[in-house]
């Protein structure tokens, strides 16, 4: 049996993030006290520990911070190898782990510092996954 890819289960803290992805306009949590963004979503600002947070629409643009090319499939990724797992640093200053898509997975095509932008993939009625593609 071919295993399908696991989907995220939103939590109360992450629901606004997944809702924003679903509407193809990603939002990130920002601290109203010190104005800094953070990611992943959590109960308080990791910079100043304020609990006064807001959700702000993000640029969806950033740069590849680092990456790896996985030659062995995780469950559900049988048809995808080799695939790229990247850490992207968004213009808002946060980093996140994601898949880099839309590029042949060879080191000559991908580099640290490469500009990328978010792509949305609607995978179920409730979940839209953000991935990132070179601009």
């Amino acid at each position: 049996m071919t295993q399908s890819k696991p989907l995220p289960t939103p939590t109360p803290e992450t629901q606004p993030y997944w809702d924003s992805c679903k509407s193809h306009a990603m939002k990130l949590p920002r601290c109203k006290s010190c104005s800094q963004f953070h990611f992943y979503p959590r109960a308080l600002c990791p910079h100043c520990w304020s609990m006064d947070l807001e959700w702000v629409t993000a640029s969806g643009k950033g740069k590849i911070y680092s990456y790896v090319i996985s030659h062995r499939p995780a469950p559900g990724f049988q048809d995808d190898v080799p695939y790229i797992i990247g850490v992207v640093e968004l213009d808002e200053g946060v980093r996140l782990m994601t898949n880099i898509v839309g590029v042949i997975p060879e080191p000559k095509n991908i580099w640290v510092g490469m500009d990328v932008s978010v792509e949305y993939e609607d995978v179920s009625e409730t979940i839209t996954l953000p991935t990132y593609k070179p601009i």
Partner: peptide, 30 residues
């Protein structure tokens, strides 16, 4: 595979991260 919330590790499964070889590979590349 258990469905997971998005957190420091939790987003891993949905982007195909299951082994330390991938995480340490990212560190090594940088």
């Amino acid at each position: 595979v258990p469905a997971v919330a998005i957190n420091t590790d939790g987003e891993a499964l949905r982007i195909g991260v299951t082994t330390p070889a991938q995480n340490f590979g990212i560190a090594a590349m940088r």
